[in-house]
Design a protein around this nucleic acid. Sequence first.
DNA 1: ACGGTTGTTGGATGCGGTCCAACAATACGC
DNA 2: GCGTATTGTTGGACCGCATCCAACAACCGT
Lengths: 196, 196
Amino acid sequence: MTGPLGGRPRASSREVIAEAACELFLERGYADTSVADIAARAGVSRSSFFNYFTSKSAILWADLDARIDDLEDRIGASTTLPGIDDALQALGRGFAPGTLALALAHAEAMRAEEELVHGGAVRAARIARSVSAALRRAGHDPLVADVAGAADAGAVIASITAWTRAGAGRIRLEPLLARALAQAGRARIGAAGPAA
Amino acid sequence: MTGPLGGRPRASSREVIAEAACELFLERGYADTSVADIAARAGVSRSSFFNYFTSKSAILWADLDARIDDLEDRIGASTTLPGIDDALQALGRGFAPGTLALALAHAEAMRAEEELVHGGAVRAARIARSVSAALRRAGHDPLVADVAGAADAGAVIASITAWTRAGAGRIRLEPLLARALAQAGRARIGAAGPAA
DNA sequence: ACGGTTGTTGGATGCGGTCCAACAATACGC
DNA sequence: GCGTATTGTTGGACCGCATCCAACAACCGT
């Protein structure tokens, strides 16, 4: 909305840098592509790269990270069980195929399986912590909350993975996510009340 | 069993290095302790450190990693549902409080919360993948398998965390793990049959 | 004494990431 | 037009983790 009112205009953008990175990932593989390589192809300095992305792996995960930021906000606001579910469903609504989808679809070609597993684990942990904290605030046993959080987080990551590998443009994410969350929710049944 | 039949004897051990590391973690914090620092205090060269541990974080996680190795072996052998459960329960049997327990108990003092969350996420992902693969081999839907695997993995990590934070020496891990797995198992109920 | 084996060590190398000071390009008030 | 504040860009220094390697050291059996 509010463009910069003064100052030097940006010389590049997340999009062009991400595009350059994905090209290189496909050509040489994720691990064999350095940030210097990416910056060079994007026509920007290595220093500037870090003004656009906080890390190399953030190229892949920035979109989802933003969604998780939203999730944390929403989940922090409402601690009711349906509220948590809504927040999780909202994460999937209108999630556009981006860099992550491309990487998941061409994981072998990019030799990025390791990074995708690792990054997915980190994001799952973020989601799990958020959900678990909300459940604990609602009076649930910490152990129960952690397990339920892990299940929900797994549902989110698994549905995104399945969605993207099936061709992210042709299938809708929401139903997949709803199915996965419903299954994960079984780990919460009977845990609806505060700790005994 | 079979000690080295020839060659130079080891000048140190995982134990002394881990002990030196934990001292430093408590004094300066995890992030502010370099592997060079650890090697120096342990009376060994930096190069040799990597002959004992594959990475700095492995000091904390080596024990659990070995357990997960076992888990993968067991789970690879039997693909039945009870077999998977047995393998998961076996992971907790006789798990001795080690470096990880110490780190979890003194997480604040070591300022190691970040590393513990991160490392836990990575290990959870390993467990989840293993369980999910077994369930898929048993004919389950990939999405279902992933969610169930994540729930089980979360149960393992959560119970270890709860166990250690409660004072690992005074409480038994097995019951906690059994409870957590039972709850996680609810995410598998109704998914016992192959994909519809 | 000697060769084979296993460990140790230092150094070189590469990469990710942080930090900073110098510089460049814009908008705005005058 | 001219300073000035603001925002971005750049190169370089710096640090830590991790890998690799060649040289060296300590043990074994023969």
